[in-house]
Structures are given as C-alpha cells and as structure tokens.
Nucleic acid binder design. Structure first.
Length: 557
RNA sequence: UGACCGAUGGUGUAAUGGUAACACUACAGUUUUUGGUACUGUCAUUCAUGGUUCGAAUCCAUGUCGGUUAACCA
C-alpha cells in the first residue's frame, strides 16, 4: 500500500492535535461560530465558518452556532434568520439548537455578582467621557476612578438597582477592578455592564442592563465548555482579559486562538462599509451580486462547494493577507466546469444566412450537455437557415491566428455544420449587418464525412427559435486593488462598470426551462444562472464568472 | 510613544535544526467540435545584521518594516 502523503497541518490543527494528545479537554473538541446578528454574513465569515466547523469535524467534534446578541440596539431577528440560512447553505450543521449569549444573561449577572463579592468589580457613576479621560494613554498610566473603592455591600446594592431599572441609560456602569496602569489598555478596569433601556430581540424588556462583549463572549464559551475559541487577530489584545475573567470566576477554561482574517482584492469586507454601500444605493441590497456577502455570492451563482474549496485553498495563518479575487473566480470555475450544463447564447448578435440551406427546414440536433460529465446526456437544439452568431466571431480583415469567420473562411458551428463565409452586407454607415454563408452538408456533427478540418468552433442560435433574455455582467466592485490603504475613502474607487446590463440577448430554447439555482455554461462566454428577478416572460441571467480567455491576450499582442 | 501579533516567489500556504514544497497568477508549449477543460515546462537561496551549530527559513540578539489595540460596538 502506498504511503499516504502527510498533509501539513495549519497552526490550529496543530494546537488541537497537541491538546488531544495531552488530554487537555478530555479528548473533546467543541468550537463555536459566534456572529453578531446585526448584518449579513460575507466571505470573510465563510472563512471563519469553514475553519470552526471544519476543525471540529476533522477531530470528531462539533460546533455551536451562538449569536452574540448583547447589544439590543443593533440586533434583529431578520439577521438571525439570514445567518442560519447562510451557514446551512454553506453545508454546515451546528450542534443542537442555535444558541444565544442572551440565553446566559442570568448566569452572566450572577458571575458579575461573584466578582463584586470578591472585590473585583465595582459600580462607577461617571460619564463615559470621564471614564475615557481617566484611561490614560498607551504611554501614561490611567488614574483610579473615585468610585473604585466602594464597599462590596454598596456595589452589590447599586448593581441590583441597576438591574431593577432605577437608573437611566449611561448613569452607571459595572467595571472590573484590574489595573489602571496596565500596559494593555483593555486591562484598565474594563466595562462589564452598561444600562440600556432598550428591548432585546429575544429577552424583550426583561433586562435593562447588558453585558459588554468582553464579559459575555468568554463566559459564554465557558458555559458551553467550548474547547477552542477561534477568532480573528484583532481580539488578540482581549485575550488577557478573556483569561482574567475565567480565572477569577474559576469557570471552565476555554481558550482563545486568533487567526488573520480574509482580505480580498478589489473589495471591502467590513460590515460597516458594506452597509454603507447598501444604504447609499451604490448596490441594490445585501444580495446584490457584486457584494462579497454569502447571499450575493449565492445569487450570483457560486456554489457552496466552490466557497468551501476557496476557504481551504487560501489556508489559515496569523500574518496579514490579501487574496486575489481571481482565486475565488478560479474556485467557481473549477466546480462549475464539472457540473454546469453547456448551452448556447449569443450576447452580441450578428445575423447569418446560410444561403444553401433549405428555407423551411428545421433540424433537431443532438448536443452533449457536458463533455466533462459523461452521464450528463444530451439535449436537442434546433438549427435552421438563419442564425445569430457573436459579432466578434467575424472579422472583415482577419488578423493572424484568428480562427473564426472572415471572408472566405470556414468555422464549425458547435454541434452542427461547417460553414464558409461567402459574403457580407454593410449598412450605409459601413457596419456589417449580415453574413452570407454556405454550409457543407457532409460536415454534420457526429457524421462528418467532409474531411475538412477547421480550427475554430463557434456557438450560434437559430433566429426563429431564439429566446430573448436579459444578461447582467458583473465586475469587481472597486477599481482599487488594496482597499485597506484608503480607509473610508473607498467609495472614491467604486468601479463604474461593476454592473453591465445587456437588455437583449438570444439564448437557445432549452433555457426557457431554466430554474433559479441551476448553473449553466454559456459556451465560450462564461457561467450563468437565472436571477430571482426573472419571470417566465422575461428571463434574466447573472454572469457568475467568465471563462478564461486566452484569445483576448493573443489579440492584444 | 506603550502592549501585543507578524515578516518565505507576483499572491497565498508549507517545510517544526538536515539543504525551500504545493496551489493560484504570469509566460511558453501539447491536446481539443468551447481560444474552455486537461496535460507539460519556466519563474525564490526565506526583511536586515550579528550570534549559536558540522548544519539555520526554523534557535538567540538587535534593528527595520507591516498590522492590531486606548467604543457604555462586537
């Protein structure tokens, strides 16, 4: 038996394997994906999802889906539903029911009481401005709050009255008593609770005090006995605090590990910036196919497998990275090449009359559905005397290496006959409006006895059978490669051609049956799928991604 | 300027003290009834300087550069 090639492990897998070996968590692996329900998931989240679910699955563990819903002012049920749908669509299943940090509000409250009793937390009456000014700065230590040395009894009393709703928003906060001179700013008596008289999407008006991220996330991990809490690099500086709370509370020792989040060229990834694009109408909603959101990628025709492969391919490490969107394109093409049915569609038509073909004849030609899949079968495509071909498949003065149509040149019509261009018609402006060709009757596809070899094969659509459709072609959102260099100025670099609508193209009749969710390859043009905007009378196709085109390069030489 | 994280080809990710690998891109070919797919080939002495060692991308020191961090956001 051949030696199985040992695939190298990423740093998280190494940690898990070490922990498994040392029996750190009793051989258990439980991860979690903890989105805040305040926006839609994007491809960066997909990386995290694949990481968390993939890591657990690889080592026989499970993954919790836990909504980090500690800020009632920003969070909504609508987002909960879309996030669940996106995770499922990506192909992952979380352990049991979805969970919520808000499930633990009572436990969290009790944790806070415990810390107060230990003299490790206190109620502060100052304004946020006062507290901020006492924080000091990275070079200078902060100063203690005048309320820092309240008695345990007073803190207990005040905290319970905070919960009871006796104080207004912002009147008081609960802070951890750590060290106002700590070199890590997050350890300078961080806030644990704030007062918000706001209804929560799950707990309604049960609470008017809500825990901060730092006093909710780690404790939730611990309550669920998460073994490996994987998050992005910016939380690295929070880790000492994460560990401080767990240690002082003496609760389950979950551990946090950080990885570098995904950055894509020509794209912005932060929820805030994506929300801006939506709110300002730069795009038509969260699922506009130009967006890097999961819902947009789905609408655009990306498959779950292609996104999972992408996440696998880009790897995971701790250094900053900027992945070329071309890698994402590659991953969809790779997947779609194997499963997309090939069809013919002419996006920029020119009429061709096959002068020696009988006027009334229609042939039903058999065309294979997918040369990459021998089980895909074939379909029937009507052929007749008048067809459309792509305008740029003809050149009046063919350049060298142009293997298509030109005066006197021959091409194969895909699945049909070889034709020869005998003549062309120009209008008064000199535009070519029509080609006159003759076909070689013996060259019929599958029973070709003509002995003629042509270098080019082009797609076509029979005019009388053609179905009209709209096509939407997408390009990168930003003209700029690295959006991190311009910050909030990114909108100056929006690609004006990120969406091109072609109102009327001609597609073969089989596409009348096209369904949302099915991927097609328009031969020689790219991968397309039906948009949800489509109706039976008005077909709309999104271009998922173009085919690799080496001719454009050749042409420009 | 404090703390923390990081630095390997154009881009990512490996190599875990034993002589830089894989993928993408680019380029050059072969095959092809999609100028697609598939296949073949070409493209780096690892941020710098010192040190440890028979041997360093890997360990140590110093420096340089990049990132994160000082919300009653997560």
């Amino acid at each position: 038996m051949a030696e199985e090639e040992k695939k190298s492990l990423n740093f998280l897998e190494q940690i898990v394997e070490e922990d498994l070996q040392s029996g750190k968590h009793g051989g258990r692996v439980l991860t979690r994906f903890p989105p805040e329900p305040n926006g839609y998931l994007h491809i960066g989240h997909a990386k995290s999802i694949c990481l968390n679910f993939g890591l657990a699955a690889k080592y026989g563990g499970q993954t919790n889906l836990r909504f980090d819903d500690t800020n009632p002012e920003k969070e909504e049920t609508e987002y909960v539903d879309s996030i669940k749908a996106d995770v499922r669509w990506l192909g992952f299943e979380w352990a049991g029911e979805e969970l919520y940090a808000s499930n633990y509000f009572e436990s969290l409250y009790q944790f806070a009481v415990t810390l107060i009793k230990k003299g490790l937390a206190y109620v502060d009456d100052q304004t946020s401005e006062q507290i901020a000014s006492q924080k000091g700065n990275p070079n200078f230590p902060g100063e203690d709050s005048p309320y820092r040395y309240r008695t345990v009894e007073e803190n207990l009393d005040l905290f319970s009255r905070m919960r009871a709703g006796e104080f207004g928003d912002g009147a008081k906060v609960l802070r951890a008593k750590i060290d106002m001179a700590h070199p890590n700013m997050h350890m300078r008596d961080p806030l644990m609770y704030r007062i918000k008289h706001a209804p929560h999407h799950r707990t309604g008006d049960t609470w008017c005090i809500y825990p901060m991220y730092d006093f909710a996330h780690g404790q939730s991990d611990s309550i669920e006995e998460i073994t490996h809490s994987v998050c992005t690099l910016e939380f690295d500086v929070h880790r000492p605090l994460y560990e401080w709370f767990i240690e002082k509370l003496g609760i389950y020792p979950s551990h946090q590990y950080e990885f570098a989040r995904l950055n894509l060229t020509h794209t912005v990834m932060s929820k805030r910036k994506l929300l801006q694009l939506v709110n300002e109408g730069v795009v038509n909603g969260w699922d506009d196919p130009r967006m890097p959101t999961i819902s947009a990628l789905r609408r655009r025709g990306f498959t779950p497998a292609s996104i999972r492969n992408f996440c696998e391919k880009i790897g995971v490490a701790k250094r900053d990275n900027l992945i070329d969107v071309g890698v994402l394109d590659y991953c969809v093409r790779e997947d779609l090449n194997k499963l997309a049915t090939r069809v013919m569609a002419v996006l920029d038509p020119i009429k061709v009359v096959i002068t020696n073909y009988p006027t009334d004849e229609v042939e039903e030609l058999q065309v294979e559905n997918n040369p990459e899949d021998e089980n895909s079968g074939s379909r029937t495509v009507p052929f007749s005397r008048e067809i459309y071909i792509e305008k740029d498949d003809f050149m009046e003065v063919p350049m060298k290496k142009f293997f298509r149509l030109g005066p006197g040149l021959m091409v194969r019509l895909k699945g049909a006959y070889i034709i020869k261009c005998d003549d062309f018609v120009k209008d008064e402006f000199g535009n070519i409006t029509e080609l006159h060709c003759s076909y070689i009757p013996e060259s019929r596809s599958g029973s070709d006895t003509s002995g003629i070899n042509v270098k080019g094969t082009i797609h076509w659509v029979s005019i009388q059978h053609a179905v009209k459709a709209e096509v939407r072609v997408y390009d990168r959102l930003l003209i700029l490669e690295d959006a991190s260099q311009v910050g909030d100025d990114f909108k100056k670099f929006i690609n004006p051609d990120s969406l091109t609508v072609i109102p009327e193209v001609f597609v073969e009749p089989s596409l009348k049956e096209a369904k949302v969710g099915t991927n097609y390859q328009f031969m020689r043009k790219g991968y397309f799928c039906l948009d949800p905007d489509a109706t039976a009378e008005h077909l709309v196709f999104n271009r998922t991604v173009g085919l690799k085109d080496t001719w454009v390069k050749e042409k420009s030489k």
